[in-house]
Design a protein around this nucleic acid. Structure first.
Lengths: 253, 253
DNA sequence: TTGGTTCTTGTCGTTTTGACTTGAACTAGG
DNA sequence: CCTAGTTCAAGTCAAAACGACAAGAACCAA
């Protein structure tokens, strides 16, 4: 028992100096889609504890900012990307021994980016790493603190978020082809989706994606030019709109 | 800007004394089903700030316990119920001005109970109140701090949780009739479900509910005795198992 | 021109869904 | 004891959704 100076009973009666102090941090799991594979950003710790190990980018919350603002600031500091949207809180972590030096409670945020190259360019290349999330989920990388568990929760969250909200369009550009959007689902869920059925279910939902009328240039191996779409306003930072559970073809993994 | 004594740049380099201290609390939204209506527990604040106002039960996290343990302790202190399960974390709140006196970050937990009478009996009756959540959602009660927003998030969470997990069985007893289980969905979603279709979709899912072979005594107004079921082990504290989106009949509300 | 690739459109059988009906088992009231 | 009312179980049925597949369109490279 490491109980210090705080009154155990009598809740609602407190005094700033009488209750345990915690450091509050914000950790951001930054996801992006690269070549059909879901990747995440890791940074190398320069200080003890866990010096030299890979970790999720994050930092201390300041007293005069909200949690969301702190997450946005950390994202901007680490990647140079300052997007006001697509920053989803997914969990809080406060085990007593998660930081060996002090009591730290961290709030986990999930960020989705589409630019890949610019991300690592923001910081020192030797200190930042873009790895497939599958490598982390399989325990191939030792992460600092309880960051592996945090990553697991983040991935589980983005998978259900993908099914229920319109977060998928955050992975792709301003305009996109349905093949690109489909790759987001396939890479995140680890499934193969039927292109025809995917198209049908996506287009059927009203306001989900809207055609621009333009065509994308075909890939290097030829193929028919795909129609370009842009994200409908329906999904913008919000509740359950889209629901894609069909169009499955093969089992996950 | 109220920035105090902490280094703005150079993350990963810190010292316990150099960074802003926060109080960390845990607030528990305690839900129960009473007469087909979703209710929640409120307690009256005895101290400033917001003295005399209704609030969600909660309290400070201790340095030597996890967040989950803190939530469980608060739940036990407030209701006398000590259930190891069905305590779901749903959000963290840390706006700078959410507590006028100090920096407080609170973690929101969601608890589901089935016993109704025993809840308020735990504390002083004048200081505890079981109200329909609809009253809170409609803004009829002024809650302390940002607790109204916390409640909104909790309700939204339990609604989707109901759809995706087996949390519904936490509202009912050890054994239950399908009518009781259906009332949970109806009360939480504010819809009317077709009894026949509800039965079909619930029984179809394997391991979701399992029949006991016994019958429940019919109600005071007669009627055929209903079969008694118990919760399948499939849902126990876990991932997406059940999915009830059909069996709808009329629009919500 | 031919073959290969990718996207779009269409078809088809199965499953699921939503609404409804029928029958079974009980209570209450005459 | 009989009947009306109530609640639950089980069946029916048409419409919609789903999953799989086939065919056609539009591009590239050789």
């Amino acid at each position: 028992m490491v109980t210090k100076s705080y009154k155990a009973g009598a809740p609602e009666q407190y005094d700033p100096s009488q209750f345990p102090a915690f450091a509050v941090t914000v950790d951001v799991v930054i996801l992006t889609m690269s070549d059909g594979v879901l990747h995440m950003l890791l940074v190398r710790r320069g200080e003890t504890p866990f010096k030299g190990m890979w970790a999720i980018p994050g930092g201390f919350k300041r007293p005069n900012e909200t949690l969301h603002e702190a997450a946005r600031r950390e994202l901007a500091e680490e990647t140079g990307v300052d997007v006001p949207t697509l920053l989803t809180q997914f969990g809080a972590y406060g085990d007593p021994d998660r930081d060996p030096r002090m009591n730290v409670v961290t709030i986990g945020y999930l960020a989705v980016l589409r630019e890949v190259g610019a991300i690592v360019a923001g910081t020192d290349a030797a200190e930042a790493l873009l790895v497939p999330v599958a490598d982390v989920l399989r325990g191939r990388l030792d992460l600092a603190f309880d960051h592996e568990q945090i990553v697991r929760d983040a991935i589980e969250r983005v998978r259900t978020e993908l099914e229920v909200t319109g977060i998928a369009t955050a992975f792709v550009g301003q305009t996109f082809t349905l093949a690109e959007l489909r790759a987001v689902y396939e890479g995140t869920w680890g499934v193969q989706l039927d292109a025809a059925n995917f198209r049908r279910s996506v287009v059927a939902e009203d306001g989900w994606v809207i055609p621009t009328g333009r065509l994308a240039p075909p890939g290097p191996s030829g193929g028919r030019p795909a129609e370009l779409y842009r994200a409908g306003k329906a999904w913008k930072h919000g509740g359950p709109i889209h629901r894609l559970k069909s169009t499955e073809r093969k089992s996950r993994q």
